[in-house]
Design a binder for these strands. Structure first.
Lengths: 348, 348
DNA sequence: CTGAAAGCGCTTACAG
DNA sequence: CTGAAAGCGCTTACAG
């Protein structure tokens, strides 16, 4: 107690129980072919010594840790926090633990997280790329592939990658939520959030335009307000500029809930009636959105579904790590749900 | 390329470079006593084979992984998400990676996260307890201690534990924010969030009562509204009940920002003027709070400071793992800042 | 049912 | 400056 004791090893337990380390190992992993008497003796010895197997050694020898890593851009962003919770939930259904690693940095940091660190200790990876794009991802993940660690991509940035991917029906969901606005009588819908970079912005713009097109409404570039940062402040500012420019507008579609929430706050502060004068809709269905005033209409893209699909694919790869054709891409899309709330007018 | 290649090992590199594995190891860890010629040959061989050291083996042998685990209750809760980001930032300043593990479950799950899983692969632990209390924590962490993995507790639940702890000045901060309400002219301040269970509720109630006492205002139990869940909905409901009960109130102190935000939304929906008729203040300074309408007055308890202190203590233990007296408790408290915003009236 | 041996892939003194 | 040897703590066939 006074001198720091070395942690007990399997050999200590074996010696105390009067058996071999192999037998201790068999008892501890519930191997059937061990006599009850031996089993009891080993258990007692292990208890007495407070023995806990060294997970590092076990993992090195067996090649399995029972844990996967989830690599996400940023937990301060509620979308990723909620998605992470879904991934953790889905993993537990497969008996897998999750270690979350956060990127929140530059490209070099993203590369170092993927090549080193925790990802080296895990059996598989669910990866939501931040700065890296399709083919770069494949290059960086070469290391993981060499070590037989399967990777599943979650989100839209991995387009050209050879990794299996799970994503959302961005075009369709975006179109559906735009149609909710149209059904409420909107004719001049601002789109907040498009940009040129890879990711969800392009398909969401496409869905928005498709809805307008189907309704016979021509595209008006004055209503399309680019923002690369999809934060609350960007949404607030984009709408403030829209109003300052004197652009006529009767609805706002934020490409994610944060943008929509920022837009909503600007509209309310400006004294406009939502949804009377201006309707608002977002994309993501964050928990917070239900509590906005008025409650934000949005589309739930299928976070839980996507997390479930990602784990289904990953669990499959974990089982059949050697047989698969490395070129085979297994891509799946989650189901979405439009959620009308207080910021939209109900259809007639 | 067609048959899955085994990952290259240090022996493969050694063979190709015509040296011993020990030399390869020395080159890769930038050991100085290696000739430039050998160094170049080893580097070339490693590149050619796409060699990446097996972190598991390295860690087993060297006893260091360069990663710590952060164990937190729930990432959906913005407070923990923001705290996690601060811990990650602080760790990077010590050259440490962070693997986040989420509890979000029952006691048994909390125990299993602490004893097994990723915590077995890391050099140290920053742990924000959820269900476990002081002495139980020590029992569960016996395993980590045996393996010489230092643990630092973050938060208020570990009171009786022998682990070093970092926390907030709950009483003082709570008193200071209550005094902000008093300075704005409040006399009937509701306290939302007290409960009997371990944690921050008790000291925050104490701070609230101390402020009232100093101002010569008697305690009124009708204004003290217990809630165990510190969510937005609980805050909204508590205030709704307060209003329904016809209790006279001119200010609300939510024991965290989520409660305050819920309270604020109920007040605004009820048509009350904030801060004209009722002032509101919270505790935590979540990013979201600055964007409420009106912006929420609150107290920043020192999340970044606490994260920095936790890492300072942990880094110290990592350096001096054997010399320390296991009974020594190193507790530190973070500095707080009162943040007046739109939900309080400025003092005269 | 149990044990001796080999080995997972590294790093660490220790010789030379 | 470089290499042979031992060993981190386990698990895994393989004998018996």
């Amino acid at each position: 107690m006074s001198t720091a004791p070395s942690p007990a090893t399997i050999r200590d337990v074996a010696r105390l129980a009067g058996v071999s380390p192999a037998t201790v190992s068999n008892v501890l992993r519930d191997h059937p072919r061990v006599s009850d008497a031996t089993r009891a003796r080993v258990r007692a010895a292990a208890d007495e010594l407070g023995y806990e197997p060294n997970a590092l050694a076990r993992s090195l020898r067996s090649g399995r840790s029972g844990t996967i890593a989830l690599v996400v851009p940023d937990l301060r962003n509620a979308y990723f926090a909620e998605l992470a919770s879904e991934v953790i939930g889905a993993a537990s259904r497969y008996g897998l633990r999750v270690a979350v690693e956060v990127l929140a940095g530059d490209r070099a940091h993203e590369v170092s997280v993927l090549t080193g660190s925790m990802t080296a200790f895990v059996d598989g990876l669910v990866y939501v790329p931040q700065k890296l794009l399709g083919t770069e991802i494949d290059d960086v993940l070469e290391t993981r592939r060499a070590h037989r660690v399967p990777v599943v991509l979650l989100g839209e940035r991995g387009a050209d990658s050879h990794c299996p991917q799970v994503g959302y029906r961005n075009v369709e969901a975006s179109r559906a939520v735009t149609e909710l606005l149209l059904a409420g009588g909107a004719r001049r819908i601002a789109a907040i959030g498009p940009h040129e970079r890879a990711g969800s912005a392009t398909p969401r713009l496409e869905g928005y335009l498709a809805a307008l097109d189907a309704a016979g409404i021509p595209r008006d570039d004055a209503l399309i307000r680019p923002t690369t940062a999809w934060h609350r402040t960007s949404g607030a500012q984009a709408v403030a500029e829209l109003l300052a420019d004197g652009v006529e507008v009767d609805a706002v579609f934020g490409f994610n809930d944060m943008l929509a929430l920022g837009a909503l706050s600007t509209l309310v502060r400006a004294g406009l009636d939502v949804p009377g004068q201006v309707q608002v809709a977002g994309f993501d269905d964050l928990e917070e959105s239900a509590f906005a005033l008025p409650a934000l209409s949005t589309v739930e893209p299928g976070k839980r579904h996507a997390a479930g699909l990602a784990l289904e694919v990953l669990a499959h790869l974990l089982e059949h790590d050697d047989e698969d054709d490395p070129g085979a891409v297994d891509s799946r899309l989650a189901d979405f749900t439009v959620i009308p709330r207080g910021t939209t007018r109900s259809a007639r």
